[in-house]
Each structure stands twice: as structure tokens, then as C-alpha cells.
Design a protein around this nucleic acid. Sequence first.
DNA 1: CGAGGCCTTGACCGCGGTCAATGCCCGTGG
DNA 2: CCACGGGCATTGACCGCGGTCAAGGCCTCG
Lengths: 190, 190
Amino acid sequence: MDDLALFRNIIEQQVNFSDSEVETIVETLKHKSYKANTLLLGNGEVCKHIYFILKGCVRTYYISSKGDERTRYISFEGQINTVFTSFVAQSPSSELIETLEDSEVLVMGYHDFYSLVHQIPAWETFFRKTLEDAFIYQNIKIESLMTLSAGERYQMVLAQTPHYLQRLSNRILSTYLNISQETLSRLKSK
Amino acid sequence: MDDLALFRNIIEQQVNFSDSEVETIVETLKHKSYKANTLLLGNGEVCKHIYFILKGCVRTYYISSKGDERTRYISFEGQINTVFTSFVAQSPSSELIETLEDSEVLVMGYHDFYSLVHQIPAWETFFRKTLEDAFIYQNIKIESLMTLSAGERYQMVLAQTPHYLQRLSNRILSTYLNISQETLSRLKSK
DNA sequence: CGAGGCCTTGACCGCGGTCAATGCCCGTGG
DNA sequence: CCACGGGCATTGACCGCGGTCAAGGCCTCG
């Protein structure tokens, strides 16, 4: 099955697994399809799933005190999405998850995930390395929020993740960059 | 030895270890004392150490493009400090580490650390949980930078980590809150 | 004692947010 | 098929938060 090859690709970017390990892991997965703009995790819900994106685009975001959205993370095919803070502690999430395009994903549940952590050492290593990556990503995001202007953050996306510009609407991209939609529009027309 | 009891306390907040495991771990540690304002990691150096703070106060910070400092993280006694992004990849660090007070620390080197990860499963779990915590911390920091005003970030420190106000100078606290020293001064006098 | 660092206070101003008007595109239903 | 409504993008006018610059006072330390 094609999806499973892609899945194995995703996890083996971090650690190599034996065929039998992959089999065990794959048994816990469910394949799902979602239309664009589907809410996968609502405000205050406990995040019980981790999503491996096969196709499409999924984001996590907050609602600020003034009521507007701020996007923390966007994943495309070949990437992972979940709300770790809620997932690892099984506590209510202040972040929401939704699809931005029609998407196909493989879903793993919390209990299966942690069974694998205890059962397959390489899976704990996979988890740890994924956390390392997520940490580095957050660190860069903090640095850019603390030291760069709106225009500089836009330039950074332009240089490093130009596909964000092609696949995301201005509205979503502006919440990701933490600037207003109007300012983004002005930046685009240089 | 008293220091080692404190060290065991620190690591057992995450995972329990057997006495023999603790012995193995402790052999890799070196005890060091530093005066206030000592640089432990310079710009562009590879972070080869992880620090367990026994006494005092240590921060990690960047230098922004305009040349001013932004503090990413501050640890006090009973906490851990390192630059994970540089440590895990053994790549040059854009963050610096320095003591803010006269400090006593236990130091573990990169090679010892990863030997333990492979040798003692509980140590990998300790590492993974520490990363989970660090991730959650970063997540909160991102949310506060994206959704709160300068005054609201100050109120948050006031409510949640009031000891920051007692033990840190205005200059350091302002770089931590990502506001100017003058604005912090005005906020303090309400 | 003098020098340098830190804190405070005032004056100024620019980045970027808010509000509002307009136009465009698209999906839906008559 | 066209008409209509809603969401998104653009553009202009305005303005407030918070940064910058500068001056003055205080404390510490050599």
C-alpha cells in the first residue's frame, strides 16, 4: 500500500525500524479523509490523536483574548501534526486543529502511541527526536517573534518556505506571521 | 553528599532511577562554581554541556540584529540549563549562556549524556520528558508573544513567577519580557 | 573620589493595528 | 443562466502602543 510507504518514509526520517516493528506500528493507524476547513480538535478538548499528513494541509492555532486567531504551526504532506502540550499530558487544549485543504491523514491514538513508546525502544527514540525537532522549530519562532519586524518575518517565509505563499490564503498566513491581514497585503505589493 | 541529593531530586521529578543507575549517572558530573556574569557559552560555540543548577541563576539569550540582548530562558536552583538546539545537533549556537548570580552547577558533557541515553532507558525517558517540558514552556512563550501586550506579559510574570522581579535586574527582566527597559520601568510604577 | 552602570522620567515618533470603503471571486439558489 | 450574498484582498486614513533618544540621579566598585 502506497500510504504506508509514505508513512514509513516519515518515521524513518528520524529512526530506522525493522519490518516487524513497522507492522506493529501500522496496525494502530487509521486512514481518514477530511474536507477543507474541518475542525479536528476543538477548544478545550483533550488531544487524543497524532496526525501523519499524507496529503493536504493542517494547522494548529489559538484564539487570542480579543477573539482573533493566531496560527502556531502548519503541516503539509510528509509532516506530523498534533497539540503536544495537550497530547502528552492528556489535558484540555487551548489550541485547535483544522484542515486548510482537503486532506488525507493517518491517525494514531494516545494509548496506542504510548504503548509503542514502552514496547518499541526505537519508537521512543522517534518520539524524542520528533520533540527535538519541534523544540528547534519553536525556538526559531520565538527568536523571530522577539527580534524581527513584520516585514522581516515576511521575508523569512519568502526565503525559507515560499510554498506557504502559494498554498495559504492571506488571512491564514497573516495569523501565522502574527501581523494583520492589511499589513501582509501591503508587504506583498512591496 | 548534599549536592547529589539535590541532583537526584532534579532528575527524579521526571523519572525514578535505581541507586546503581544514579551512581552511574553521577560519575559523569563535574561540580563547578562561577562568579556572577560569567559567560558559559559564547556566540558561535558548540554547546557541549548541560548544566544542573544547584545554586544561583543562569540565563540563555540571543543577540538581535540590532545588537541588543533577548533572554530566552532563565533557570534557578533545581532547574536545568543548556542550549538544546546546539546540544542535540552539536552545531554552533546562536544563543549564549551566562550566570546572573554567583552560581554552583553540576555539569555533564555531550558524550556522557548520550552514552547514558543509550545505556540507561530511564535516562532516555528523562531526556524525553525534559524535552516535553521545554516544549510546553516554549509554547506558552510563543502564545504570550503572539497574543499579549507588553503590560499583559509583565502581569503574567507578576502572577506566575514573582521571584523574577526580586532576583533579576530591570535590564535582564526587560530583555526576557521583550520590552524596553524604559517601558518596564513605567509598568512597575503602574 | 571619580567613573560607569542602572533606573527613572520626559519628549518624540514610527511601526503596524484598526476601521472603513470598495472590488473581486466564488458558491448557491431562484 | 444570472442574481445575490459572503468571504477574502486591497487601499486609504487615522492613531496608539511602545521603542528610541536624552538628561538626570543614584548606587557600586575600584
